[in-house]
Write a protein that binds this DNA or RNA. Structure first.
Length: 919
RNA sequence: GGGCGAAUAGCGCAGUUGGUUCAGAGCGUCUGCCUUACAAGCAGAAGGUCGGGGGUUCGAAUCCCUCUUCGCCCACCA
């Protein structure tokens, strides 16, 4: 076959992917082999491929392909996630562009639009994965909202409800006012923010001039005086009219309409005078009590806390404790509600600005300080979260934490890198209930059905039944007293949908239908899955919860190993983002460097757990490597074979050596894979191919120009090539398939994908490898002399070995060929005018006649002498230390003695050489 | 505020049980080469008192303490 000098991925990759598909080579069915299962972390159904996916999916594909070549039944299950809140947002945005508001649509109409959008954009990302070379079993492609998965979700909800692990309740939740839904704690991202601390006056409800409760040492401050929060006596604020007031510090003055009390710490000496009093909420003029609770920090602000139970988590707790009313002053979109009484209809942040002005004008603002605090934002819509009292569905998590913590802590499930075990433990030991309901339509609708005729019952007390279907709901409802004859159309299903992660946590089970059809052949064969590859950012969202569901529903782990990837950043260390424009389109990269090149570029810099700084030049390196492989193949396939010739001595030596080297590296690669050191494994194969095979082995066996190669060397070389391709295949599937198919005629449907990766015996000859390193060093030294003296490559040289060397002796043919020598002589003294060098304790020399530069040679020898004397000194320091000789292990001392002998012998040779030159 | 992790060559990193093999490979840089597979290449070379300080030890990149800097996660001081 005629091969171009440059490898062209575009002509190769599509062809082989099609071949793999046509022959159904990714397909997996349970059989007698050991299973190797991976479930893909389902990307958002309407998403497109980004660099993070490239990293993640490449790692998975490498692991899957490797397992397949190890003879396991590899099954990689692909699929997508309905991504409830993100997708609903996209659909709403698209509808808005057409002038349609969500509120104008019925649920059914909206869902039709959502499904249209999903059908249109869904699966684009899966197609892109094919271009990357991912060997997923596409027949198994699943969607978190397809029928099988949806049924699983509903079934699990009902089951957990029946077990008492799901409850409905009025709780303070994280409210996203943009999407108008509750969120789980994990969906809130906290940002540092520069804001203000506002000090507000709450006048005491009493006549001007009152002194009730004041002690003799009280410090009376006028409005303008600063106060010290750490003082140990009363501080009383009094205005010009003699009216006393409390000062309350808050970051959110717009919530004063919801104030229902002011709280002080009973141990706070500053504020004891406020005990039992009532104060007037500024502007609102509501009279509220002073309550006391040790929750209040004495030294924060003034030690007075305004209590707004409806809009702050802690205030809510106080409200519960002291049985205070909660006034919800916000609408679901975070505008001020009727209940606020003031500023009704205004946005919360506009209201803050306005109320600050109004407080100032009314002389109710004591002062304003700069203040840094943390504000929670919605992960999806990026608007500030509003803590909101709302009726939601929750999962009791303590039970799940109890079953999910031990298997990770005792390494039944292994985390790579292990540092994430700590993160995992922290979360589980401080677990809080999981809010699973969302006020969204795109998702699995909560299977709770409310009984009729409850219009006058408060929401929280309405009766309902939970059931997988409406029919079962009716059955259940009829068991309730007074509803014996209820019908389906009288029941009202809960409007909410479930958190997306409530379906994701079942993924490793639901993909094999293990929920609907427990104990089926597939779930029994493929579960637990083998490796999960994902980012540490979803360790709580997903990894932990899958472990919980796994033990709850199958009594076993969902996966044996978790490989946490890093975050892909640009080469300056910045997160990749659309707004920065620093995120390359993976498909452009594939066009430019080939999928194999991009995969390699990604893996060259991706140690587990570390962030990876992605640089396009790494793809270039990947592409260059592909080209190298291609050209090696071109070289070998270009040789003509002489059927009668026997291998040359150099070739015979080369084969023995490479055989050993190949085995050694294969073992190293095995070891790296067993530890999930994938970059290291790739680097080992890269060095093997480029340095050992191309630069050394091929050069050693290469026939002279115009000559043929003997049959045995040729066949052996192709066998090595075949094996090297197998080692490379998991990393770069396309080029390896292309070349493997061209090594010899292959049967239809045959593929490198299934060639065993461990065909060569495990015996390696370490002595041979070590000796050959010495030989390489000799050759390099001769080459360096050539370069220094400007001796052309084609000019033959003579090598002298002073005193001979037993290690190097068997390799004379190789040295002669690689260094282009005419002769190798063992001499007792080197020739006049020879450039010399030392390898180990042996001196070598290359006679150069008049090319010899005596000065330069002397300098080189003297430098070496200085170095050798230095090492001898260090060794002697150790050996002269009685403690060292007495306490260090025998072997270590012996090693030092050998070093001493070597150094002494080397010094002697160097001195002799110098003397000879000077003589 | 609590926790976890990191700091090694110009860059991004490896270094497992303290000792031969420990101070490493890759990229980049420098020098010389279009040598009959590959310039997306070949040959050769230079680069680091392992963040600072202390300690343990015969011996420390490695173990301990401390400081500095950076990163990440968690947490209700309004």
């Amino acid at each position: 076959m005629e091969l171009a000098s440059k490898y062209s991925p575009a002509q190769v990759e599509g062809k082989w992917y099609q071949y793999w598909m046509d022959n159904r080579l990714f397909s997996s069915k349970p059989d007698g082999r050991e299973p190797y299962t991976v479930v893909i972390p389902p990307p958002n159904v309407t998403g497109v491929l980004h660099m993070g996916h490239v990293l993640n999916e490449t790692i998975q594909d490498i692991l899957v392909r490797r397992a397949r070549m190890e003879g396991k039944n590899a099954c990689w299950v692909p699929g997508t996630d309905h991504a409830s809140i993100a997708t609903e947002a996209k659909v709403i945005k698209r509808l808005a562009e057409k002038g349609i508001k969500k509120s104008d649509l019925t649920r059914e109409e909206f869902l039709r639009h959502a499904w249209d959008w999903t059908d249109e954009h869904g699966g684009i990302i899966l197609k892109q994965l094919r271009q990357l070379g991912c060997s997923c079993d596409w027949d198994r492609t699943a969607f978190t909202m397809d029928e099988e998965r949806s049924k699983s979700v509903i079934k699990v909800f009902c089951d957990l409800y029946d077990k008492g692990l799901i409850y409905r309740g009025l709780r303070m939740v994280n409210w996203d006012p943009e999407r108008q839904t509750a969120l789980s704690d994990e969906e809130v991202i906290y940002h540092d923010e520069h804001s203000h601390l506002f000090y507000l006056r709450y006048y005491v409800d009493e006549p001007a001039g009152s002194t009730d409760g004041e002690e003799p040492d009280a410090q009376v401050l006028s409005a303008t005086e600063p106060f010290d929060p750490t003082v140990k006596h009363q501080i009383i604020h009094r205005d010009a009219q003699g009216r006393r007031y409390a000062v309350v510090a808050t970051t959110r003055p717009e919530t004063i309409m919801g104030d229902i009390a002011v709280c002080i710490n009973p141990k706070d000496p500053k504020n004891t005078w406020l005990r039992g009093k009532r104060v007037i909420v500024p502007l609102v003029n509501r009279v509220v009590p002073i309550i006391e609770d040790r929750y209040v920090e004495i030294e924060f602000g003034t030690g007075c806390l305004k209590v707004t139970p409806a809009h702050d988590v802690n205030d809510y707790a106080l409200g519960q404790k002291y049985n205070l009313e909660a006034i919800d002053i916000f609408n679901p979109d975070a505008t001020l509600s009727e209940a606020a009484g003031l500023y009704v209809g205004m946005d919360r942040f506009d209201c803050r600005k306005q109320i600050v002005k109004d407080l100032d004008a009314a002389a109710l603002m004591e002062k304003v300080e700069d203040y840094d605090n943390k504000v929670g934002y919605s992960e999806r819509t990026n608007v500030p979260i509003e803590p909101r009292l709302s009726l939601q569905w929750f999962i009791r998590m303590q039970h799940f934490a109890d079953i999910a913590l031990p298997p990770v802590m005792n390494d039944d499930i292994r985390f790579y890198p292990t540092k994430y075990k700590n993160t995992y433990r922290m979360w589980l030991e401080n677990i809080k209930d999981w809010c699973i309901s969302r006020q969204l339509w795109w998702g699995h609708r909560i299977p709770a059905y409310f009984l009729p005729n409850q219009e006058n019952v408060p929401d929280a007390e309405r009766q309902y039944v939970v059931a997988e279907t409406i029919d079962k709901a009716v059955e259940k409802a009829r068991l309730i007293k007074g509803y014996e004859t209820v019908t389906a159309d009288q029941l009202t299903q809960d409007e909410g949908a479930l958190d997306t992660w409530f379906s994701s946590w079942l993924w490793p089970i639901s993909l094999f239908d293990g929920i609907n059809n427990p104990g089926n052949d597939e779930i029994r064969y493929y579960y637990p899955t083998s490796d999960l590859v994902t980012g540490p950012d979803i360790i709580f969202f997903w990894v932990a919860r899958m472990i919980m569901a796994g033990y709850e529903y199958l009594g076993d782990m969902p996966f044996r190993n978790v490989y946490f990837t890093g975050i892909v950043r640009d080469k300056l260390g910045r997160k990749m983002s659309k707004s920065l424009g620093n995120s390359p389109d993976p498909l452009d990269l594939i066009d430019k460097y080939g999928a194999d090149g991009v995969r390699m570029g990604m893996m060259l810099s991706a140690p587990a757990g570390n962030d990876i700084l992605f640089d396009e030049s790494l793809c270039e390196q990947g592409r260059n490597f592909n080209n190298k492989i291609w050209n090696c193949f071109r070289l070998v396939k270009g040789w003509t074979v002489d059927e009668k010739a026997a291998p040359s001595e150099a070739a015979a030596t080369a084969m023995r050596w490479f055989d050993a080297k190949l085995k050694q590296t294969a073992a190293l690669v095995d070891d790296h894979f067993s530890k999930y050191r994938i970059s290291d494994a790739l680097m080992a194969v890269y060095n093997l191919f480029w340095d050992e095979f191309s630069a050394w082995y091929l050069e050693m066996i290469k026939p002279a120009y115009g000559c043929a190669i003997d049959r045995q060397t040729y066949d052996t070389t192709l066998r090595y090539f075949d094996y090297l391709l197998r080692l490379l295949h998991p990393f770069m599937p396309f080029i390896t398939e292309e070349l493997w198919q061209n090594i010899e005629e292959r049967k239809a449907g045959e593929s490198i994908m299934f060639q065993p990766v461990s065909v060569i015996g495990s015996e390696t000859d370490d002595n041979l490898i070590r000796d050959f390193e010495t030989v390489k060093e000799v050759i390099s030294n001769i080459r360096a002399i050539r370069l220094q003296k400007g001796v052309a490559q084609k000019e033959e040289l003579v090598l002298e070995i002073v005193g001979g060397n037993a290690v190097v002796a068997p390799y004379q043919a190789v040295i002669t060929k690689m260094a282009n020598l005419s002769d190798i002589n063992t001499v007792s003294e080197k020739s006049q005018g020879a450039a010399s060098f030392m390898v180990g304790t042996t001196e070598y020399a290359v006679p150069l006649g008049n090319l010899m530069d005596v000065e330069a040679e002397l300098k080189k020898l003297n430098d070496e002498l200085t170095y050798a004397e230095g090492s001898l000194r260090i060794v002697m320091n150790k050996l002269n230390n009685a403690n060292f000789v007495a306490r260090a292990p025998e072997a270590v001392v012996a090693a030092e003695r050998k070093k001493q002998a070597d150094a002494e012998s080397r010094i002697a040779s160097l001195k002799a050489a110098i003397a000879a030159l000077q003589g």
